[in-house]
Design a protein around this nucleic acid. Structure first.
Length: 273
DNA sequence: CGGTGGACCTGCTGGC
DNA sequence: TGCCAGCAGGTCCACC
């Protein structure tokens, strides 16, 4: 589900609820996430204060007092939602974190592809999940030259290369397709065929598009919500994603969908060559 | 080695 | 109304 704009929106909406608050209780209702939840590690979080909430790629990091970091990944269907304690539990609520004074945080995830992991600041980058995280999309180092180094040596389709978190961390299938629409490149183009000019256009489009999506609080189809259970609005601004059969916003053509690998690509057959 | 395809899950939608 | 196939925003691993 959530790509960088959704994860960023979740972080921003969590901060007013949780910054400066101390964890008073943790309840584990379901341990079977992508990696089994370590209940004892979560219990040791009781008494720790939330000093910061940040993200690295699509990972959410709760910076806790001492040297502790609580890491989340939302997978496809994960949600972190702040609710009043009296709110009835829903199916697929897997973790409940109490902050006292009527503040509860719940982790909800029907597909259980998400991840909750406790680690330390000093060993954060030793985690297999974070060890090879690529550049943040807003990092000034994300240039046409940077991307060109990867594309020229790769036979992969450019859509798949953009999904590789080791190169750029935070893009998913929606925004990879949208970036290729913005830069007039067909998603199935083999990476080595891109020109330096095209990688420059991609590098420039990435922060612009993601910045827009963040301003619209992300993309919600059915189930993405922020910490206040609000949907995003960017689905109304998509150029190609999930628009199979609908008119291109630029030319008279109709958007096409292809199954590439196990996931769909969307593009305008006229604008994107 | 790089690249592809399937596995991991549940829920929803659309066709019959 | 029910049933079934296909699809979904991500990641990881086995296999060419």
């Amino acid at each position: 589900m959530p790509e960088l704009p959704e994860v960023e929106t979740v972080c921003r909406s969590l901060r007013p609820h949780l910054l400066g608050r101390t964890i008073a209780g943790v309840t584990v209702l379901e341990r079977r996430l992508r990696v089994p939840v370590d209940t004892r590690a979560l219990k040791r979080l009781i008494g720790k204060r939330v000093d910061g909430i940040t993200r690295m790629g699509k990972y959410i990091l709760f910076d806790l007092s001492g040297d502790t970091v609580w890491l989340f990944h939302l997978g496809m269907s994960g949600k972190l939602i702040c609710v009043p304690p009296e709110m009835p539990r829903r199916k697929h609520d897997h973790l409940i974190i109490e902050f006292g004074a009527g503040h509860h945080l719940r982790y909800h995830d029907p597909r259980r592809f998400g991840l909750s992991l406790v680690t330390t600041k000093s060993s954060l980058l030793d985690l297999p999940q974070l060890r090879y995280v690529g550049l943040d999309p807003f990092d000034p180092g994300l240039t046409g030259d940077y991307l060109f180094r990867f594309t020229r040596a790769s036979a992969r389709r450019i859509r798949d290369l953009l999904l590789d978190q080791r190169i750029v961390a935070g893009l998913g299938n929606i925004y990879a397709n949208e970036i290729l629409s913005l830069t007039a490149i067909k998603p199935t183009t083999r990476a080595y065929r891109l020109t330096r000019k095209q990688t420059g256009a991609i590098a420039a489009a990435i922060p612009v598009l993601l910045g827009d999506a963040i301003r619209w609080c992300g993309t919600s189809f059915s189930d993405y919500r922020d910490a206040d259970d609000r949907s995003g609005e960017f689905q109304n601004h998509l150029r190609v994603y999930d628009r199979n059969g609908e008119p291109c916003r630029i030319c008279p053509s109709v958007i096409k969908r292809l199954a590439v690998g196990t996931r769909s690509v969307f593009y305008c057959p006229t604008c994107q060559k």
